[in-house]
Design a protein around this nucleic acid. Structure first.
Lengths: 345, 345
DNA sequence: TTGAAGAACTAAACCGATTTAGTCAACTTT
DNA sequence: AAAGTTGACTAAATCGGTTTAGTTCTTCAA
């Protein structure tokens, strides 16, 4: 092991420049209190010694940590299968780069762990603020952020209420109305919805919209079935649906993986898509555009969503007054090859 | 904004317990120097005050930061399209969770930025170690880690040489031999390889293997074309290949997105897969299993790879002697519906 | 009964930055 | 020319832990 270089400190710079540590701090932070020449001299020495601020020392001194936090409460194994998460992360990073801020992230497996993590991060002054996803009813996390005074942004489905945490929201009801409405307009009267887990707000919202359409469009059937988002669950639910005497003429899936699994089952059962069955997904991805038939989806710019969330958080860090909630990018219906009018009876 | 609670410090605990800060520190860290009763009393008070250590203060005191770093030098926008990255991240998090260590991550857009980031992190004592991906010839990053004495692990294609940085390696030549060899064994004599960017080591290794097979299996044609990993590039290259007078009977793609794009082009041109054309990919993913025909791939457990890398890094942090390189999980050939013997001439 | 050893603790230094209070000289003002 | 102002700087406190060098008290052996 080669000899390790010593980290240069402002003390080293001060000694070399023949000034006090305070003067060095003023010079490096562009604050008044040193002459132009001295400032120049100090900056030159700092450069020469290859000095970088010690963030631990800075954080200890009550100033900004230069880090935002992101806790994800999901089984770590499935991160790779979902499209949402890496895209959101891309957006977060895009928003962070110009601010020269790093991301501190942790995957946990329970709400309690998530709450505990925020508490620890706040105590340790490890992060300046956090991004919170997957809102819940009476969310304990928002109460905690309020209690601690830890800045945060929530990514959710409606502007935040009874919390000072601003939300970047995408109207999931509206999105669901767009997608189900399009299928109803095509003439479909037997719709099925292969949903995700019921604990998430958007799952509920989508199911509610579908039920509200029953009367409005005089649907013959309209069922939402919760699943665990897996391809297997989607496949078996699709087999069940397509084996019904009065099988649905359109199935909508809550994510892209399930839609692909459903498409495969339709083929396996010899049911033509979109001839005999229309398929659509609430999640877009590169994959569902590349398969045959390509799948009609709601295209949401998740990257943009992450970017807006970060910008909102950074604003909140600078602001003295609470920052208002903001709408995120609106989902667009991308009609592709997997949807068509239902077959004539 | 509600009144913010004050962070409890060991000073607060000391005052309540009527002891010194030192005693509290001993008690909380399970070190000798306090009696069992006093320790109990201190722990009780710490719990009551909801105390958590301030990581900034701990890091400042030369001890462990409890964080490892990961810098990704990729366009942030594409993170969401690749399978490799979120899977690796899943594995990293899986390895990190039991150690109660957080991940500090940053996306940059150049090698210089990446190097600078390591330097800053080291200076700031922000991370205890780093995970480095995408090895290059004469990699300046490894030299830097050696120079700084910053612990790191490299994820690469062979055990590390002339650096003390241990590697978790997956033998890419062997993997390429397996995949190209299987196609040759099926009887294919005109192979094409739609590759990624040439700057990555594994791209070169794969092309070399293909060339070495020309003589060994008396191939009629064997071309590797570099691309930018995009679906568009793969589609147009596939169109070109399939328009040749003597078109290849098998095409191998460097990732799953390109394989899917190629499959779509084959269909668009009315070329049956696997009847007239075999298709395979070096990257597996849930998606290529769900499409029709499902695609033959090399299945690499990227999640496991990330986990092994983290464990190696954590070992290196604890160890006094250099930690040896370790092989990662070996890729397995997953034969699916997209490959078959070539059509009879 | 004296001395040594050990346990249980305290006081204070330390890590590297920021920040406040204060010093000193030069310059302005009337 | 005395008073006030400003600029350039220093010394020292501070953040919250860890760690080292003592100090005090108890206990046990010779």
């Amino acid at each position: 092991m080669p000899p390790q270089p010593r980290r240069a400190t402002i003390g080293d710079i001060a000694r070399r420049a023949g000034v006090s540590k305070g003067a060095v701090s003023f010079a490096l932070n562009d604050r008044p209190g040193v002459s132009a020449e001295t400032r120049q001299r100090i900056l030159a020495i700092a450069q020469e010694l290859n000095w970088r601020p010690n963030s631990a020392a800075q954080a200890l001194g009550q100033s900004r940590a230069g880090v935002i936090g992101f806790v994800l409460n999901r089984p770590a194994r499935i991160l790779g299968t979902e499209t949402f998460f890496p895209e959101l992360l891309s957006g977060i990073q895009l928003g962070l780069s110009p601010a020269h801020t790093a991301l501190h992230m942790l995957v946990v497996s329970s709400l309690e762990e998530e709450v505990e993590t925020y508490r620890e991060w706040w105590h340790a002054h490890r992060v300046d603020g956090v991004i919170v996803v997957d809102p819940r009813a009476n969310d304990p996390r928002l109460a905690l952020l309020d209690e601690l005074g830890l800045p945060g942004v929530l990514i959710g489905s409606h502007p935040s209420r009874d919390t000072s945490v601003p939300t970047v929201w995408v109207d999931d009801s509206e999105a669901a109305r767009t997608l189900f409405g399009y299928l109803a307009a095509l003439g479909h009267r037997r719709l099925a919805h292969v949903a995700g887990t019921a604990e998430f707000e958007h799952t509920l919202l989508r199911s509610e919209v579908l039920q509200s359409f029953v009367g409005q469009f005089s649907l013959e059937s309209a069922t939402s079935t919760p699943t665990d988002y897996s391809a297997e669950a989607a496949a078996s639910e699709t087999r069940r649906l397509l084996s019904l005497p009065e099988r649905p003429t359109a199935i909508v899936y809550d994510n892209d993986v399930m839609a692909l699994a459903g498409l495969r089952v339709a083929h396996e059962m010899g049911i033509a898509v979109p001839g005999s069955l229309s398929i659509a997904s609430f999640d877009d991805s590169l994959m569902v555009r590349l398969v045959r038939p390509s799948i009609t989806t709601l295209t949401r710019d998740t990257v943009e969503l992450g970017e807006v969330a970060v910008r909102t958080l950074l604003d909140a860090l600078d602001a003295t007054a609470p920052v208002p909630s903001r709408p995120g990018p609106a989902p667009q219906l991308s009609v592709r090859e997997s949807t068509a009018p239902p077959p004539r009876a």
